[in-house]
Design a protein around this nucleic acid. Structure first.
Lengths: 236, 236
DNA sequence: GTTGGATACCAATTTATCTTTGGTTTATAT
DNA sequence: ATATAAACCAAAGATAAATTGGTATCCAAC
């Protein structure tokens, strides 16, 4: 219907009018249509009424909208950003910690099923080295390697890739932290026993135990991290 | 020249001076050292000479530089893009399925804690649309959107990014598949009820239930996929 | 009392502008 | 010849301004 008949309710008229506009006007390549304010005046309707029509078309899945970006035809493109730097920019330490708590226990569970004796002996090596570390920097190196060895033990290149991505973002995001204590990690450091419990569970093919041990470990890390942050906030 | 040691070659002198500076001065946590112009004046040498010394240390791998960014200690962070194509090449449908089973239930668990009413109503929309789908292509579109909406509902950009990566690999890996049956999804399709159970659990903030519902769903998908593969192998 | 329209404001996003930074060239002086 | 200073370039970051969808408010009309 090109000329809106007067016997149709105005709301429906706007929807029809909008459909006609979208059908005829060839919009930009990205399917973007003009801003609401322009489109409203171009169609000779108020912005509120145009928005109601847009709501209808959006509910139909014909278009999608986003604040600051615009309104687009077709289905929403999944803006896949696999770029580490971009991910790190948008994320923060809290998110990273939550992501670790979500991912790593399940990775550990899978590893408990697939780990080879070679994997497990490499984990044991990481454990021993981390205990011998004389600086926090060294300790962190062995800690990182232990966690990655577990991911490798899943024998799943995709899971390993996802873990690496998570880890890269973690390093990028955690910059700006302060290692206040220059001393070496103490033997009583909580991670030692926790790490050992994880590797033990993997060795015993205890999938549930491995997952929960990793989860417990990461939640301790998260708690320590939050405590440190609270202290820093209190001091500042 | 403030105190030029005559017995040392000036170039080597700058290198030594620079090494000493890097050893003593604790630079920022990201390992960044001051811009060349500042550092040159701080060390009392010309910028050109400082750059020569920096060239030496860079050749030794002790530091890395980047225009517009600065000069940094340590090894250059592997400019990792989680290369979807590379991941897909190394992976296979079975790995993808195992990775989904590892990740998505935990994402769903997190979503059950953080989902907003808007998130949930969007999930319901996806459910309804997927039921109305008249082709498998349409159905897959709404299925994908449902799963991504759940990932969005975690309010965690990193988890969302990891999910997107996983999803991109999945599409890349499943590329060569053929949807043999041109008929529309039947109302008895297993996913309908399973999807609904997932969204219900999220709506009721049942984190454990949401996770296990998603896990059950994905395991059904995996089973169907294996059966199909067996049939294909039998036919081939 | 409800509806529709105009306006103003908000937050997310993009665009434009300026600054910083490593890399390079040129001219000058010792 | 060599070193120094200066100037310029392109890449990256930082900041400011403009856009845009979303929302609330007020007012007039029926």
């Amino acid at each position: 219907m090109l000329t809106p008949p007067s016997d149709i309710h105005p709301e429906k008229g706007v929807v029809t009018q909008l459909r006609a506009y979208l059908a005829q006007s060839d919009l930009a390549e990205d399917g973007r249509l003009p801003p609401e304010r322009e489109l409203a005046s171009a169609l000779g309707v108020s912005r509120a009424e145009l928005r109601k029509a847009l709501d209808v078309l959006e509910a139909e899945g014909q278009l999608w909208r986003h604040v600051g970006k615009g309104t687009f035809m077709g289905s929403r493109p999944l803006d896949t950003f696999a770029d580490i730097a971009a991910l790190a920019r948008r994320s923060n330490p809290a998110e990273v910690m939550r992501a670790r708590i979500a991912m790593e226990p399940e990775i550990t569970r899978a590893a408990a099923f697939t780990a080879t004796p070679a994997d497990i002996s490499e984990m044991r090596l990481c454990l021993a080295r981390s205990r011998q570390a004389e600086t926090w920097r060294q300790y962190e190196g062995w800690d990182t390697r232990l966690h990655r060895t577990i991911a490798e033990a899943t024998q799943n290149s995709l899971l390993l890739g996802l873990f690496d991505t998570l880890n890269a973002v973690r390093r990028a995001v955690t910059w700006g932290r302060l290692r206040s204590v220059p001393v070496r990690p103490l033997p009583s450091h909580h991670s030692f026993a926790e790490h050992e419990a994880i590797v033990d569970a993997i060795e015993h093919r205890d999938m549930a135990g491995a997952a929960s041990a990793m989860r417990a470990h990461l939640m301790t890390v998260e708690r320590k991290l939050m405590e440190k942050q609270m202290r820093a906030a209190g001091e500042g």
